[in-house]
Each structure stands twice: as C-alpha cells, then as structure tokens.
Design a protein around this nucleic acid. Structure first.
Lengths: 157, 157
DNA sequence: TATTGTTATACTCTATAACTATA
DNA sequence: TATAGTTATAGAGTATAACAATA
C-alpha cells in the first residue's frame, strides 16, 4: 500500500467524524447544513449564477434552485437578473444572510475551540501546522469539475 | 480572540469542505451518507441497541429505525432481540453490509490518496503529524459507554 | 440548436408526537 | 409509571426528466 493511501485511510474517518460531530452537536435550528454551505459559498464567491453555485456545491441545478428559493423567502439571499445574459440570474447575500452565517460559524467555531482547549499544546501545534496543507489539498479539488453528478445525496455541511 | 478560537476558525471550513468534496465526488450510488456512517458505527461498536445507535449518530430514534429498516431490506444489517431485555433489539452487520462498507471506504480512500499524491512531501508530513491530534480531538467528543468495544479496525466514516 | 434556469415528481433523511410492548 | 422501539406525519435536500426563455 502506498504511503499516500495509508495516510488517506487514517485521515478519512477522522475528517468525516469530526465533521459529523460538529454538525450534529450544533444543530443550529436557524440554518440547515445545505443552507449554511450554500450561504458560505455565495459569501466567498458571489454574486454567483445558479449554475456556478450548483457546480461549487456539487449539487444539481434544481437542488440549487430549491435551496436558494427557500432562503430567498427567508430573506437570506436575493436573486437579480444577470445584465449580460437574459437567461441567467445572479445570487447574492442580503445583510441578514451575512449576519446569520456569521452567527452559525461562531457557534461552530466555539465548539471546535472547546475541544482544542482540552488538547496538549503539542497537539494543537500539530493541527495548526497541518491546516495550510489541508487547505492546499482542498484547492486541488477545486480545479477539476465539470462532471455532472449522479447520485444519492449528501447532506452536507 | 484565543489561540484556540483562531485555530478553530481556520480549521472548521477546511474540515467541512474537504468532507463535502469527498462525499460529492465519490457519489457512491450504492450507499447514502446516512447509511454509510450508520454502517460504520455498527461495525465499530455493534451489536448495538437502537437507542445507542441513535445516540452515537446524533439522530432521533425514529430516524435510526428508518435508516436501519431500509438497510435491513437491502440485506446490509440484521436485527435480533436483545436476550436481556424484551423491549430492545440488537443491530449488527451482515457479511454483505461489511463488504459494501469496505468497498465505499476503498473508493473514498483512493480519492484522498490521489489528492495527497499531488502535495509536497512536507505538506503530507504535516498532515500525517496532525492525524493523532485530530483523533484525540474526536475522542473527546465521543459518547462514553460502558460496553465491550470491538477491535475491528475502523473503516469508516 | 444549445444553454440557463424552473417546474414536476419521487425518494431519503430528519424530527416530533402518538402508540405498543415490556420492565 | 418509565423505557425501548415503531408508526404516523411533515418538511428539507437530493436527483432525473420535462419544460420555458434566451443566446
């Protein structure tokens, strides 16, 4: 087994379970997981066309439409026509959406910080040192897109 | 802002997005996300009572019942009465369920390994060094249970 | 004709409330 | 009466297929 595959085998369950733990312990009745990540994506890359959002979230366009519709009714995002293309729309955060996202992020960060506080300083250092590498790994995944998804879902976030 | 909170703020989005990327790019039509983590939990800690599974998965008992029912029909898990308590049931993996879980884990590990291969050696080292600390962090969040632990290596996730 | 987005339909995951059976 | 689990019901997220409007 390659060194990379060994590391992947050790890393994957940790990533997934940490993620689940954070999601499940901070239910955040005010924002579902799909809403939370969609909002974060629009914050980071908006204004976004519906197709771009779907691509970044790795969901189908009808799913993106559905999630955005709901959040538009909640006043968290707004849609406006794309001036350059009559078929397209541009999605962006409202002030309320931005505020809500910050609140949820704060709750979740506090949970993680609470766990970190209970580790040794050397353990915290190791995690801090890995963050740039994990970020680089994520960036590698950003590039190759384009393949439509077919499948059972994810619930993300 | 505390050092821990700063680190949490950097770490959280990376965890969430890496997880989404893995789940979304390995659609795994054969196993939904909820099925996958439930199966992994039963593998690691089973046989489990329905309530224990719900607690570990951080879902309601009706949700656990529903997910298990579906997987039972698919032949991935089986239910049997708890000999010590007539109200309770014990859930465990079938051979088929174990095999299916391993297949999905293999696919996902391969995806992560592929990304790791494209990093620098120093980045891989940083990630490898952080794995024990991340694992320790996860353990802090675990539900404590007075129950025999299986030794099967975790495949999970 | 091709692309962007929405509508129609169906399935899974999720929760709360009500119910059954056992302790 | 309390606990373990299931059933009933409802809402969100997801997908594919079919449709409308624009390029």
């Amino acid at each position: 087994m390659s060194r990379e595959l060994e590391l992947a085998t050790a890393l994957r369950p940790v990533l997934l379970r940490l993620n689940n733990a954070v999601r499940r312990q901070v239910p955040s009745a005010e924002l579902t997981a799909a809403q939370c990540t969609a909002l974060a994506t629009v914050l980071d890359h908006g204004p976004l066309r519906m197709g771009e959002l779907a691509e970044r979230e790795r969901v189908s366009m009808p799913t993106a439409t559905s999630v955005i519709c709901r959040m538009e009714k909640l006043g968290l995002v707004q849609r406006r026509p794309d001036p350059g293309d009559g078929r397209a729309v541009l999605v962006e955060l409202t002030r309320s959406g931005r505020k809500r996202l910050e609140e949820v992020a704060t709750q979740r960060n506090a949970l993680i910080a609470g766990l970190l506080t209970r580790l040794d300083a050397s353990q915290r250092d190791a995690i801090a040192a890995a963050v740039p590498a994990l970020t680089a790994m994520l960036a590698l995944d950003q590039v190759p897109r384009a393949e439509p998804m077919r499948t059972t879902g994810s619930t993300t976030g």
